[in-house]
Amino acid sequence: METHQDVSDLRALIEASVLEVRGDGKAGGGLVLAFQSLANLMLRDPETHVQEWPFFSSARRGANIRSFLRISGRPIQAACEVTSPALSVLMDEGAARSVDFAEGVPPGGTFVLNTRHSPEECARHYHLSGRVVTIPGDDIGTKHLKHPIGNVSLYVAVTHAIGGFGIEEIVDSFLETLKKRRIPAAILERNRAALLASAEAVREGTYHEGAPEDHPVAPWTGYGTLPVGAQTPLRLSQSNRTAGYAPSGVRLRFEDPTTACTGCAHCITNCPEGIIRFAPDAERGLLVHGVDVSTFCKLCGECIAVCPEHLFQEVPFEDRWEEVLAP
């Protein structure tokens, strides 16, 4: 691997060596589809080779996942993970809470983010040096697909970042990928509209807000002492903060100003995470007074559905970036 390669011209990278792409997102958020679509688009050029794969372990919907893509004008032999991608993609800003999506990106690299924020805001917030491309994919998804899913837009933004594609082939290739998944025709048309809208909504700029030490590749520090047979302790080991699985931009709220809670306990027994907060109550048996929203709530909405008094609701919630960055 050349060490002082210019990584800013992605097309040149494809022709001269290989363009390595890494994406971070959440399972069920469409990252894999976006990468597969990119691979299909690339393969329309008979001279281009691709290697596309996701890493998801046993992650379920909402958990962080990663996708990788290599694109080259020559056959691709490398089998190792992508650790210094020239193009880094962030599908879901929620995913960036637990991983550094810019990790190992060489100076002058390209960043594509699905976000409402401007390229400049993103560069400053995430300490990015290089070309920053943004698209408000969730909003476009909500408008055209009736669902805040940004993969259609993200795909378009990445094609923009790589450059050299006509809008028709960008649209056709994506729709072909969907057809293979047996998506009904009406939904294909909505996707077409979303693709076209996305092409108009890409923004970009080049910034120098990050220092090389901002996104170091964490060195491997060994396996440490592992328990025999992976036998593991149980008590008090709740370290997997699953609130990150919830969709970005919304949050659960419990409000009961008039103490309408009847103590029916349905929210407690139907909460998959067991995080409804309540106290014994002389009159009702028990009284619900809240939910542990910030640590474990995946915002599945079951409490909203089962509460006879409608005390739970989903409300807009904007992550303030200061909070996100707090350790």
């Binding site: 372990s57 046993s58 396996y223 440490g224 592992l226 025999v228 047979g229 992976a230 036998q231 593991t232 302790p233 149980l234 008590r235």
Partner: peptide, 23 residues
């Protein structure tokens, strides 16, 4: 109070095999 038979990802699996070999 314990769990047997947990699952791991490739980040850890090899480490367990090393300890198994050492035992």
């Amino acid at each position: 109070d314990t769990a047997f038979g947990t699952c791991v990802t490739s980040r850890h699996f090899q480490g367990f095999k090393v300890s198994q070999k050492r035992r």
